[in-house]
Amino acid sequence: MDTLQACIASVGILGPGLPDWPTAARVLAGAAPWEAAPVLLPQPVALPSAERRRTGAAVRLTLAVGLEATASAAIDPSLLPAVFSSSGGDGQNCHEICEALASADRQLSPTRFHNSVHNAPAGYWGIATGATAATNSLCAHDASFGAGLLEALCQVRVERRPVLFIAYDTSYPQPMRSVRPIPAEFGVALLLAPPGSAGALAHIALGWSSAPADCMDAAPLEQLRSSIPAARGLPLLARLARGAAGPVRIEYLDGARIALEVSHAAGS
């Protein structure tokens, strides 16, 4: 079987000091310094007001990066299947549930409960965009970026259509933060399309490696990459930002690395 391949048609990103793809691309290309800044999660205006009030960080984050990627590619998000991958989903919501269950009355809010499902961002994405195609919601702990990317690449290959891939993580409050110290919200969306799609940023081909994963040159960016599972894909984004062809190794499970060969997109 030949190599799994896809085009990257567009990117959305939101994380510390990386407020959108145009800004992040300059930082990742080394054209501008990374500057610490809190992650400002936009109001989820795409949702009906009744739903808007019910959303937490995971939903706002994924809507922001997903809509940035689809807008930048001028693609109607309602037509796309989507793959979500996250190490821990909504950390604050999980904490609130465990705290309520440890209290005397164990009263849970119904909204908190239905927001606790790992696929809550996928559910709200559908409500916001009207997308009725399949979504998937994955978790692979620290390998969640790689696991989601593999699922999306398989979908592109088998379904022969564009797929929106969103990796995201949120931070836990204490006491969970001590055992899972994810420092900040981080989300990235890649609109993947079949090889040869017009106007793509780059082309990627999948391979494997046992060599160490690529690190980021700038210390603060390496800190993001190594501390937030969804940011494990930053070396790929850096290559996209620089427009430079070549290999990228991304952390996956145990001793395996996903080795992507990035090239200029044919037909772009």
């Binding site: 079987m1 799994l4 991958s85 499902v117 790992h118 696929n119 996928a122 399949a134 979504t135 998937n136 919601s137 994955l138 978790c139 692979a140 696991a147 593999l150 699922e151 690449l153 398989c154 979908q155 290959r157 088998v158 379904e159 499970l253």
Partner: peptide, 24 residues
């Protein structure tokens, strides 16, 4: 390896993901 966590459809959807991974 991955967990698919889509509430009560999760472990039906794993058949679809596995099928794609084999087909791909």
């Amino acid at each position: 390896a991955a967990v698919i966590s889509c509430a009560c459809s999760s472990s039906a959807k794993v058949f679809a993901s596995a099928q794609r991974a084999i087909a791909a």
